[in-house]
Amino acid sequence: MNMSEHDQIRELLALAAAGALDADEESRLAAHLRSCAACAAELNSFQEMGAVLRRLPTPQAPAALVARTISAAQSRLAEESTRRSERKLIVLAVVFSWVFVALSWPLAQFAARGWTSLVGLGFEQGWENFAVFTALCWTAGAVAAAALAKRRQQERGVA
């Protein structure tokens, strides 16, 4: 018998019991086992160990642990969900503020000056007006964000 082939095959025996051989290795092993009783016996030994490992009793997770875990994880999930909704609301408030500023200034000008407002943006009427207008819009956004934060604080207090 070719000893080096025998030694190489022996390296595969444990892996064969673990179902971890590729097709080529499996056919080499099968061919070798037909003429090597020692390797066949060793493979049986590993397979028996593998079978016992698969049948080892499963330690049971204590019921109280599972109940406690479900409760804590559900709280975390709900918290994450609320946080995500609030993030979305704040982004919406910011976008709304910007869109409101961009759209309402020309509309306000139109209301004040009629069709002549279409000739220009009306900054010649005074950039201070525009700044005050923008500040008002942003204040509205900030109030919305603060209201959200306050509500969250209250919810935490209740929980």
């Binding site: 330690p59 875990t69 975390r76």
Partner: peptide, 29 residues
């Protein structure tokens, strides 16, 4: 049971496996 068994195989101490079990699900959430 499967997750608890796996953690127990790694840390070997039931109290530690229980703590890690809960931490794992908090992380999942």
């Amino acid at each position: 049971h499967r997750l608890y068994r796996y953690l127990l195989r790694i840390v070997r101490q039931p109290a530690e496996a229980e703590d890690l079990f809960q931490q794992t699900w908090l992380r999942v959430a």
